[in-house]
Design a protein around this nucleic acid. Sequence first.
DNA 1: ATAATTGCAAAAGCTTTGCAATTGG
DNA 2: CCAATTGCAAAGCTTTTGCAATTAT
Lengths: 143, 143
Amino acid sequence: MSTFIQQAKEHLQNSGGRMTSQRRLILQTIESFTGHPTAEEIYNRARQMDANLNLSTVYRTLRWMEENEMINSRQFKDDRRQARFDPTSRADHHHFQCEVCGKIIEFEAEQAEQIKQQFENAYEGRVNSISVFLYGICPDCES
Amino acid sequence: MSTFIQQAKEHLQNSGGRMTSQRRLILQTIESFTGHPTAEEIYNRARQMDANLNLSTVYRTLRWMEENEMINSRQFKDDRRQARFDPTSRADHHHFQCEVCGKIIEFEAEQAEQIKQQFENAYEGRVNSISVFLYGICPDCES
DNA sequence: ATAATTGCAAAAGCTTTGCAATTGG
DNA sequence: CCAATTGCAAAGCTTTTGCAATTAT
């Protein structure tokens, strides 16, 4: 079974929630994306399977998934209004966005861990998450 | 003269723009903040000096300043709708936000430069800016 | 003089919400 | 059964925009 549906069922058991056909569809649809879809992109793809699905349901599910740490919501400079989403299950990664074509490239950076540690030592606070955003020109647009 | 007004005049000369009383006021007001005000916060403070100032003018000025790299716009998880602004003149810094009280702490991190270099080497792209966001619990809320 | 900028009001655009109808456990 | 969830339509909120009036140069 898909990771999401597995995870979702656990959360639902702990909270008296219910697995509905809409949730199942939305979970599967998000998993089918490799990039960072918006709510609307998820909605459009999911609607191909169930024409009655409503955009509100997508938003509600997305928020619920975020609260349960199944996905992260990200905002990029090129469209500050719309949020984009990616599964937390993907290896810890950060984002580069091309300022010309908008493409998003994911990358890993061990230094992020150091930054976190360093902050915790300096401030005695606790850091739960770290995200690094790079903006610039991608290889394709550079040449 | 304030740094902003200086900078602004240069940009205006190069583009045939004009220095208006509203712009001067908005520039000074932004400079008067130490933190990361929203457009509305800037508007409210500036309006104490000029009750006729319009929120649209604040937004237009903010966007113009961002295009001319006088300020950065930042979005934090606790309120994804509203943008927050800080002067680019402040030393290169990154942000921690407390998930409990919302407080923002600025910090510096030399590792950011390494992350940038590493990305440029790996992808042959050009990185123009980097920002690191940490989320967690601040010292005050931790205890 | 005249082009840039402002104020005002309206629109845009993403996201949330109230509520009656539906549905999963 | 009955509480959780959905669909629908309307509202909410931040930000943008069109346009006539104003103003800097």
